[in-house]
Amino acid sequence: MVTSISTDYEFRSPADIVAVMEILLQKFPYLEKAEMAISELMVNAMEHGNLEISYQEKTALLKTNTVMDEVDNRLKDPLYGARRALLEVEEFTNETFVSISDEGPGFIWADFLDQDLSKNKGLHGRGISLALSQCKSLNYVGRGNKVVATFSRPDA
């Protein structure tokens, strides 16, 4: 396997995620079917990684419709707001690796990986399982602040 392209994108905010996704899909159009998976992992890196919004906190914020307000508040916080997340794309002959890392303390990803979605009737908590359904493989690394999603190349 020979690396043909390796590209990095930095992001920290919701607007960055939208902008990075647009650039990513322009450069790698075949990743359109992976858009949901990559976007979910980027949102997780921002909300739960860098900004340290816990599952329980998000549940409460959703009830008051203030998730984005809290995201904005933490982005202005000197501790959380200074953190950056990184999306890296490595293209190989048969597959593409998309790595997303953040500067947070990591989280217990195993609780959300491959869950039975039919049993989740809550307002959130589906992102990782949905992302997994779009990937060839999904692996968390180290303390859980880096995830590597593998996608098959459509022409492979």
Partner: peptide, 13 residues
């Protein structure tokens, strides 16, 4: 044309 997991959560509302 496109929905994410948060969008699904919004539909539950």
């Amino acid at each position: 044309p496109y929905i994410d997991s948060a969008g699904l959560g919004l539909l539950l509302r």
